[in-house]
Design a binder for these strands. Structure first.
Lengths: 136, 136
DNA sequence: CTGCATCCGCAATGATACTG
DNA sequence: CAGTATCATTGCGGATGCAG
């Protein structure tokens, strides 16, 4: 976080940009940083399939800690991407679900997943080639 | 990283998933973690506009440190998403560009950027609503 | 029993300075 | 100009403890 400069003046791309994702202070950038987050992506994809409880999410997303899950869910709820419903049972049941806003993002995220699954072999080949070049 | 269980059996999502992004050990997950990275996304979007030199990238992407830029570029090059061309001038000129593989990912990333720019106002409204609820 | 907040250890990150 | 090395800091991740 530097000062409040939004766009370095004189940049050739300045006119091409609508919002501006490249300036650290711009809200668009903040939002991108959130949805481009490791856990956020996975959580949203999972919830895109249907509502789910906290521990179900925790079990579904391998490797996530309770703290990170709780933290990320709270952030996503604050951003209006995920809704949190508390059922007054004993003990309480908290269910997380996608909001319409969050659902509108799902397509883009799904594209990333699809790409990853589709081109993973090419990436692995590239990695092997890179590692075998001159780097033992 | 738990044991090698890739999919919890009996999960309703089991049939819908092709690879599996939710297991920490699956390569797809590793790849997703990479492209869903904060800096990777920005670098790829910038390079999608055309080849660029190191310092140009550094200036363009506000808030990135040399270390992170260098590190992320190296990872992206290893994954075959970005190519690194060294011109034998004095001093050396290193130019980074997208590979065809990287370009195939660009559409998905651009969708995320577009979504962020389009729905930013709704997110801000949701944030304001969330902060104003019962949280001073 | 479920969900969340707090503590601490550690890896990743960021800023600075230096080399090819 | 491109990139690495070093050091200070942040944040993640794990364990524990508390509230409903």
């Amino acid at each position: 976080m530097q000062d409040g400069t939004f766009l370095s003046p004189g940049h050739p791309l300045e006119t091409r940009l609508r919002g501006d994702v490249f300036c650290a202070a711009c809200p668009t950038r903040q939002l991108l940083d959130r949805i481009a987050d490791k856990w956020s992506t996975l959580i949203l994809i999972v919830l895109g399939d249907g509502p789910m409880r906290f521990n179900a999410l925790r079990h579904r997303i391998d490797g996530v800690s309770q703290k990170m899950l709780s933290q990320t869910l709270k952030a996503l709820e604050r951003d209006g991407l995920v809704s949190r419903s508390v059922a007054p049972t004993v003990p309480v049941s908290v269910t997380y679900a996608m909001t319409p806003l969050g659902r509108s993002l799902l397509a883009a995220l799904q594209s990333m997943i699809d790409w990853a699954e589709t081109h993973m072999d090419e990436v692995e080949a590239a990695q092997a080639a890179y590692d075998g070049r001159d780097r033992p």
